[in-house]
């Protein structure tokens, strides 16, 4: 074990403790941004667990997130169950869904995988909307809890912490090494003896689980839930953009992207409410052209260059 690994974990733990104090200082507007930010930190870090090493860009985050939010809505509104029931059930359902998608997409790679996950997320969104409108009555779903923003924030922080710890463990395990090899050359991966299918499906299922967990936690924020809103495809794109902005090659990379992007995104939403999609496209182009390996990748590149200059 390299000492830097423990240092990284220690810094992460210190940051989690510090972040826990945010609701003491921020309230109202800033706390609501902090909740959004924490949501994206959890989603992007979890997304990067699979897509970072393997380079399989998944646009299905919105689908799993939606399963979380929708199940909280329907179970609380239609079945009068406690919030905690869907909080446990929804991630398991999403994980099962991710498992099926993972198995179905095993033979797809590159752009085919991207398109498949996007199309599938749209299909799930429309299917659930259709079921909701035709069979369950078109009335909306109410999520009424006593949770305030700071409760949601702490829950999301806890989930983000768990995802980080899991990622830290994965990076030091056989499966983490296997995923990196798969991302480099899947044919070589198979020929050195890696069961590529199992490794990919396990990690994809994990990201589905966490996306639904985050979707379930954030649901009380809206009070009123519609399938079209929780299964938002825009969320899938935002998660990818934030993770890529920070750099998906490092565990803490997405974190670096989420914080500034959330703040800018809020500002854009207020200033140009009708042009936000345009901004999203621009941000995507900029990242791909200017920061293909994210901010973290650029910093490491500069550091290497300085290192070479010295030697």
């Amino acid at each position: 074990m390299k000492p830097s690994g423990w240092l990284e974990l220690l810094i992460a733990a210190a940051l989690v403790v510090l972040a826990a104090f945010v609701p003491m200082f921020a309230n109202g507007y800033w706390l609501s941004i902090a909740v959004t930010g924490m949501m994206y930190i959890a989603l992007s870090t979890s997304w990067a667990l699979f897509s970072g090493p393997t380079h399989y860009i998944s646009l299905a985050t919105g689908a799993f997130f939606g399963v979380g939010g929708y199940m909280v809505g329907t179970m609380m509104s239609d079945y009068q169950l406690s919030f905690w029931v869907p909080l446990i059930v929804a991630p398991l359902v999403a994980a099962a869904l991710a498992l099926l998608i993972g198995i179905a997409t095993l033979r797809l790679s590159g752009v085919y995988f991207v398109i498949f996950t996007l199309g599938l997320a749209e299909m799930i969104r429309n299917l659930i909307s259709w079921i909701q409108n035709n069979f369950l009555g078109s009335r909306g779903l109410y999520v009424l809890t006593d949770f305030r923003d700071h409760h949601l924030y702490w829950m999301l922080l806890g989930v983000a912490g768990v995802i980080y710890l899991l990622g830290w463990i994965v990076n030091r395990s056989r499966i983490g090494f296997a995923l990196r090899i798969i991302g480099n050359d899947e044919t070589v991966a198979r020929h050195v003896g890696i069961n590529t299918a199992t490794a990919k499906v396990i990690m994809f299922t994990t990201t589905g689980f966490f996306a639904a967990l985050v979707g379930a936690i954030i649901a009380p924020r809206w009070s009123y839930i519609e399938p079209n809103q929780v299964f938002s495809p825009q969320l899938s794109f935002l998660v990818v953009i934030m993770a890529l902005l920070g750099g998906a090659g490092r565990l803490w990379g997405p974190l670096v992207g989420v914080i500034p992007f959330t703040i800018i995104w809020e500002w854009v939403g207020v200033q140009f409410p009708n042009q936000s999609t345009l901004f999203l496209g621009l941000a995507f182009l900029l990242i791909v052209y200017v920061l293909p390996n994210g901010v973290v990748g650029r910093i490491e590149q500069l550091r290497d260059r300085i290192g070479e200059g010295r030697s």
Binding site: R174, R180, A189
Partner: peptide
Amino acid sequence: GRTFQLVRLLPGLNVLENVMAGAVFGH
């Protein structure tokens, strides 16, 4: 175990990690 006609290394991994891939997952 095999090598490939056109050499196939793992470009994102360093020399040692490339060889470790065999040691970790091989026979």
